[in-house]
Design a protein around this nucleic acid. Structure first.
Lengths: 162, 162
DNA sequence: CAATCATGGACATGCCATATCCGGATCGGG
DNA sequence: CCCGATCCGGATATGGCATGTCCATGATTG
């Protein structure tokens, strides 16, 4: 029961893109270099963000990625679901139907009681992620990191943004 | 990002064991037959419950499993963690350390801001599961299921309980 | 026209969930 | 006191999926 590596990468990429000036683009190559992860595989995660409408892309030289919405309107949940999918962590295989004491034609009117609890927990998980936006993350990072590193990182980005 | 099949099986087994009279035991063979799942593999999940102290076991003929605590003192979280483990769903690989703008000797004083959000979501998930006990589940099932099926299931169990 | 980029498909690899099987230890009933 | 049933743990297969690489294609910029 692990989230994919790509979820972590996508979130870090979004954090970087949040600091990009309006209208500028950053390539997958630069993003992979900045985070020290394989470029080709990171591209798969970024494609997921693109399909979900979280980022906008441009082709050709000086092309790449930028956020498609203001950072305050993109939540952790949006990013996580774009990469990981929207399936619940709990898959109900309806084993209650295997109960030998059931009439063969019996039809349940509610989902399994166990599944309902597990799905409620998933919902709590999603609500927590939906409550935090990329703007919140940006603010947290500015408090956590020394100004010197922030300054040099921004410089590094602007140097490569098309 | 899926929970194991065994989690579902373990929860259903616990629901059955909740209806067992004090001091009686039910074998892995009966539990697997009742749920229509492979006996050998279900045994692995039950071993997890045993190690976690959730169920008590007895060897020999008429042996098997019973709850080790009152149903009101066993939570969904206990069962899930016994089978699935206690690791967080999000593994932070510290890719922030790969940032080329960081001094090589820089040491973070806090966990990664992204990981903190993801871990908070996991915590909300666990809290939801910790809030529901097997006694709660038992009560829900008695409301959901027709009395006839409940009666026949209980009869089926008592017929096989040692 | 040449270089750079995103996209998507094909392919390889390794790990883990999903089983299955067997031997040993333990216990109940005849 | 023996026989069979049971839990337990280890060894072993197998399939799917996460991880990662490579390449062809089309689009865009300079």
């Amino acid at each position: 029961m692990n989230l994919k590596n790509q979820v972590e990468w996508a979130l870090h990429c979004c954090a970087v893109l949040s600091n990009l000036p309006e209208g500028r683009y950053l390539s997958a190559r630069s993003l992979s270099e900045f985070h020290g992860v394989p470029k080709e595989y990171l591209g798969k995660a970024l494609q997921g963000l693109s399909k979900a409408g979280i980022v906008h892309t441009t082709l050709g030289p000086s092309g790449g990625y930028r956020l498609a919405l203001p950072a305050g309107e993109i939540t952790f949940l949006n990013v996580v679901e774009a990469v990981e999918g929207r399936k619940s962590t709990f898959q109900c295989s309806e084993i209650r139907a295997n109960n030998p004491c059931r009439p063969g034609d019996f039809c349940d009117d509610k989902p399994c009681a166990i599944a309902r609890v597990m799905w409620k927990a998933d919902e709590a998980w999603r609500q927590t992620l939906a409550a935090v936006s990329l703007a919140d993350l940006q603010q947290t990072l500015q408090q956590d990191l020394p100004a010197e590193i922030l300054r040099r990182s921004t410089e590094w980005l602007l140097d490569r943004a098309g």
